[in-house]
Amino acid sequence: MEQASYIISQVINGLQLGAVYALIALGYTMVYGILRLINFAHGDIFMLGAFFAYFLISRFGTPIYLVFFATMAMCALAGYLMEKIAYKPLRNAPKISLLITAVGVSLFLEYFCSLKAIFTPDYIGFPRPFEVSAWNISLGGIDFSFTNVQVIIFAITFFTLALLYLLVYRTKQGTAMRAVSHDQEAAALMGINIDHTVSLTFMVGAALAGVGGILYGIAYPQINVFMGIMPGIKSFIAAVLGGIGIIHGAVIGGLIVGVSEVVVSAFLSSTYRDGVIFVILLIVLLVKPSGLFGKRIDKV
């Protein structure tokens, strides 16, 4: 029984981390779907989100609900500028130069923000806007606990996902996004403005990463300018796991990566947690190369 409660708490911890990954993975998957670009700088938008929130809370004492909206807006602006300045001029260049540019943008954001005059290269504590409290629950003889942090993370993630679904499946802009992702030329012929749609995709993806950044700060209250690198790579792996370009695939992929990472840390060793994700990725890609929810692409 003790073992069972331990497992359950670890899975809940994993889902908490996974929710953050899912929010980041969504931006990767949407941008990849529309431009076939692995936007390596996306992880840094997540970092920017955490830092924006940090400043809003600690310097200006902004109320938490405003912090969310303001951070999303600022991240969306960062995503918009990133696309317009760095990626748009390369729309017709080989895909690989675009990828290298994305790495360049990523490094630039990290090192630029690490300057003392901007943010700082050091770890700083993220000010939690509330005290952590835990509830103990007993279900069928199995005791486990969860915290208000987890409740908040799950609630906000769920709410954000619901908004995203409404946007993508219930609005004209969402239809345009899906059309461009399906077939860019056909979408252009149908009169869809490709540039606007690409910009919108970057902005939405960046806003989601921004939410991820705040939640990460609340859950693991240490932030740093390089904090986006590993979560970024893992979230991209999560997006590939779920089937790149597929929204619910990114969410499920993120949760899988989060849970396996935490469970492996708890039962084996935290030093193996990055390795296990690759093993899962490899197995999934070999069994189903287009990812868990991906559609099969036939050759010839």
């Binding site: 390369l90 260049a93 130069s97 540019t101 943008v105 490094l107 990290e110 090192y111």
Partner: peptide, 21 residues
């Protein structure tokens, strides 16, 4: 010297735009 890694990625981005091949 801290600025080194601010310049390098900028140069990289400019190079990619200037000579994508």
């Amino acid at each position: 010297l801290d600025l080194r890694w601010v310049f390098i990625p900028l140069l990289l981005i400019v190079l990619m735009m200037w000579r994508p091949y």
